[in-house]
Design a protein around this nucleic acid. Structure first.
Lengths: 198, 198
DNA sequence: GTCTATATCCAGATAGAC
DNA sequence: GTCTATCTGGATATAGAC
C-alpha cells in the first residue's frame, strides 16, 4: 500500500488510468507490465505507485468506473413511464450506442473478471447484475402485460445483453453502417426476439 | 523448437493439452506459467517441451482443435435440404448444445485471440469466419426467400452468434433448466429475432 | 512528483544426466 | 521420457536521492 489514491492527483492520474485502459484492453491485464504502463504515460515505473496502491486496484477502479458510468448514463435517458416495447427499444439503442463508443472498457469489464481478487470480483459482479436487472425488469413487465412473448425473463435478459454487447467485437467507425443504423438494427432484432413488432 | 509434436506422444500429450485448456480458461493465457501446467499434469516444466515446441503453439493448437471440432460437428448434423427456419432452428440448438459442453474451449477461443501471434491469429480468424459464414448463409437465403425479415445478414449472423455463445457465461449443469430447455429457449429467441414464427 | 537503484521473485526455454 | 540444474530476462514493488 503506497498511499491514498487522489491525494496528489494532477493530470498524471487520469493519464495513468487511460494508458492502463488502452493496454489492458489490447494485451490483457496479466500481459501488461507496470513498466509498459509507465512508458505509455512517459514516467518511470515507480512513479505509478503515487496514483494507485497496486496493479490490481488499477484494474478494479477501471471496471468500477465503467459500470457506474453505464448505470448513470442509462438512468439519465431511461423513459420511465412508457410501454414495455418502447422501453426495450430505448434500452437496446442506449446499450449499443454507449458500448460502441467504449470498446476498450467493455472488453476489460467482460474479459478480465478472472483477474480480480474474490472481494473485488464480488463488488464488480454486483454492479453488473444491477445493470442486467434493469433489462430483466423491462422484460418481466412486458411478459406480464402480454406485450412480450418470452421463454424466461432472466435467460432472455442475458441473451439480449450478450447479443447487444457483441457489437463491440466487430463495429469500427468508418464502416458501411453508421452508429445509428447499427443501433437501430440491433433494437429491431431485440424487439422481434421477444415477440414485439419492430 | 524442441521437437516435432506427437512423435513420442503417449498419454501425457493429451493430459498436457487438457491441463493447459483448464488453466488458460481459468486464469488466462498470460497469467499461466509453464510450471503451473507441468504441476497440474504432474511432471517437471522441462518435460512439457516434449509435447509442444512452445507455449504459443500450445494455445494455437487448442484453439484450432476447438474450431475444427465445431465445424465438423455442425457438418455432421446440418439438415441440408431444408427450409431456412428449420435450418436456423437446427443451427441454434446445435450451437447452444455444443458450446454449453465446452465452456473452457469457448472461453479461450474468444478471449485469447489477442495472445496469438499475427500469423496464428489470421489462421484462427479464418476458421471462425468460416463457421460464422454457415449461419450467415442460412440467414441470407431466408431473407431472399422471404422467410426471414432481417436488417442485414452479416450483422444478424454476428448478433445471433454472440447471443447464442453467451450461454456459456452463465449456464451451469444442475441449475433449474436442462440443457435441452435452454437450447430450445435460445432457438426460439433466434427464430423470432429474424421474424420467423417460433 | 519523479527519478535511479535495487530487493525479491518468477518467467520461458534449454542442457545433459539417468 | 522425465528429471535436475541453469541461463537470461523481466516482473511487482519499495527505498531514498533530488
Amino acid at each position: 500500500m503506497a498511499r491514498k489514491v487522489g491525494s496528489h492527483a494532477g493530470t498524471t492520474g487520469p493519464r495513468v488510468r487511460a494508458a492502463a485502459l488502452r493496454l489492458f484492453a489490447r494485451e490483457g491485464y496479466a500481459a501488461v507490465s507496470m513498466r509498459a504502463i509507465a512508458a505509455e504515460v512517459g514516467v518511470q515505473a515507480g512513479a505509478l505507485y503515487l496514483y494507485t496502491p497496486d496493479k490490481q486496484t488499477l484494474l478494479f477502479d477501471l471496471m468500477r468506473e465503467h459500470l457506474e458510468e453505464v448505470r448513470a448514463a442509462w438512468a439519465a435517458v431511461r423513459p420511465d413511464p412508457a410501454p414495455p416495447a418502447e422501453r426495450l427499444a430505448a434500452f437496446a439503442r442506449f446499450h449499443v450506442n454507449h458500448h460502441i463508443d467504449r470498446p476498450e472498457a467493455v472488453f476489460i469489464a467482460y474479459m478480465e473478471l478472472r483477474a480480480l481478487t474474490p472481494e473485488n470480483f464480488a463488488r464488480i459482479e454486483a454492479l453488473r447484475r444491477a445493470y442486467e436487472g434493469e433489462l430483466e425488469a423491462i422484460l418481466r413487465e412486458g411478459a406480464c402485460s402480454g406485450a412480450f412473448r418470452l421463454p424466461d425473463a432472466r435467460l432472455a435478459a442475458r441473451a439480449l445483453i450478450a447479443m447487444l454487447t457483441g457489437v463491440t467485437t466487430w463495429y469500427r467507425a468508418g464502416g458501411p453502417m453508421s452508429r445509428a443504423e447499427v443501433a437501430e438494427a440491433y433494437a429491431a432484432l431485440a424487439l422481434r426476439a421477444v415477440g414485439a413488432p419492430a
